[in-house]
Design a protein around this nucleic acid. Structure first.
Lengths: 168, 168
DNA sequence: TAACAATGGTTGACGGCGCAAAATATTGAA
DNA sequence: TTCAATATTTTGCGCCGTCAACCATTGTTA
């Protein structure tokens, strides 16, 4: 008879599967994103900005949404700003704060990148599953997400109201 | 009427969800793993070794299984060897090759770490879903995994046969 | 057997990100 | 008003993993 070792526990292989899929997809996506001059994190930040009413979000909100550190966000936005895809704007109501604002070229760039990217997503992920499978997958993931990262919807409300004030 | 923008495409949010879950879980797990002195990658390598018949795998096989670079594997194994959890052994049949062999303390360590780790996994992942949901999730992930990383089962067969030859 | 591509592994340079401390701005209390 | 406590962002430092170059070994072709 086979002894059941703890390192063979099903739950362990279940997370393992998730990790493998994540890495696999990341690798598949990297090439094409690279051709657009974007990393996964950069794309995500641009996306979050693009989805926000005024195309702007505060640094700390970006950090909360992406589960990068605030310092991580600083660096990513540094790069994006150097590339002309984002501008920093000071926040009138709280001079400690900084808006990251998507530029027009930033919006163009992310739109173009996404158009290609979606092909990959479809090819390596959503397109592999039946609608029912995809629905079940998404539903399950949503449940996990909501308990593991409840804070992931920060700052959208204020950003809609605020007027950016781009310096320089 | 609302115009549908490409950056709001459902498929995009579907991958987004996967990424969020992965990051969220990674963060939740990191603390406890850290207390055992292990990172996620280190744990994974120890696990793969522990699951192999002779507790050994070649560097290149580890790389294939983990989707780390071979150089990445080199560094991780460096650390694990420094910590006494793994030993390198030369491969008799191909003197280019190197076995990474799990030591006894390595096996103890990974067993202890996993015992704790599974609690977290259960609490933040598998335990959140009904058996049916978990089954559906796993099945869907397996489909994606099989097309995205078909090479993920390398080297187990030879390792079972081989005799390690630990130097020094 | 010599020459050469292919394979396995390590190393040096480099970039990305987290952590903790610093710099700046805001709020509250005495 | 002034000072302490708190909030927002940036910076210094270090770890980790990739990329490309490298050495050693193996297999192949002539």
């Amino acid at each position: 008879m086979a002894t059941t070792r703890i390192i063979d526990d099903d739950r362990l292989t279940a997370v393992g599967l998730l990790v493998e899929v994540h890495r696999g997809l990341t690798n598949k996506f990297a090439a094409r994103l690279g051709r657009h001059g974007l990393s996964e994190n950069e794309l995500e930040i641009l996306l979050r900005l693009g989805r926000t009413p005024n195309c702007q979000l505060r640094m700390s909100d970006l950090a909360a949404q992406t589960s990068l550190t605030t310092s991580g966000v600083t660096r990513v936005v540094d790069r994006l700003e150097r590339a002309g895809l984002v501008v920093r704007a000071s926040c009138d109501t709280d001079r400690r704060g900084t808006w990251a604002v998507l530029t027009d070229t930033g919006l163009e760039r992310v739109t173009a990148a996404v158009a290609d990217h979606i092909e990959d997503v479809d090819r390596w992920y959503t397109g592999l599953l039946t609608p029912e499978q995809l629905e079940a997958l998404t539903e399950a993931l949503r449940i996990v997400r909501d308990t593991v990262r409840p804070e992931a919807v920060a700052g959208v409300a204020e950003a809609a109201r605020a007027r950016p004030h781009v310096d320089a």
